[in-house]
Design a protein around this nucleic acid. Structure first.
Length: 125
DNA sequence: ATAATGACATGTT
DNA sequence: TAACATGCCATTA
């Protein structure tokens, strides 16, 4: 397994129930901040039932799953089961549900402290 | 090696 | 709003 893939899985597993992260956000914490599309690729091809793939959506708060065994409606249902409110257009208020990791969490991911701050600043409201 | 493929993101019309 | 264009980069073929 590639280092990138391993990191993606680790990060997605850290998203708490009832929260979401964007593809680009996950990419940022892997250390490849412009690899959002690859995060989607990993989640498409490498999912198993230990990975909460449905907690990853796009940065606009929309469900954009494509070419998968799963449908957007399935993902919406899974998120609703965790208490997340989803509009009929399958959109979510990111400000409300986005998970921003703690600094302790990011240390475990061995991210540079300044880099972590920079990323979090981008996503904190 | 080289080229093609996309569960993305952002800016421009 | 929504469509379109462009940049992006890990993985595959």
């Amino acid at each position: 397994m590639s280092d990138f893939k391993q990191r993606v899985i680790e990060i997605v597993k850290a998203i708490p129930v009832g929260n979401v992260m964007s593809y680009s956000q996950v990419a940022a914490y892997t250390g490849s901040p412009r690899a959002a599309r690859q995060v989607g690729w990993i989640l498409n091809k490498s999912i198993d039932d230990t990975i909460p793939w449905w907690r990853v959506i796009n940065n606009a708060g929309r469900i954009t799953i494509k070419g998968s065994y799963f449908t957007p409606q399935t993902q919406a249902n899974l998120l609703q089961n965790e208490g997340i409110i989803i509009s009929p257009e399958l959109s979510i208020t990111m400000d409300t549900y986005r998970y921003v990791p703690t600094s302790d969490q990011m240390k475990q991911w061995q991210l540079d402290e300044n880099y972590s701050k920079l990323i979090n600043q981008k996503y904190l409201t």
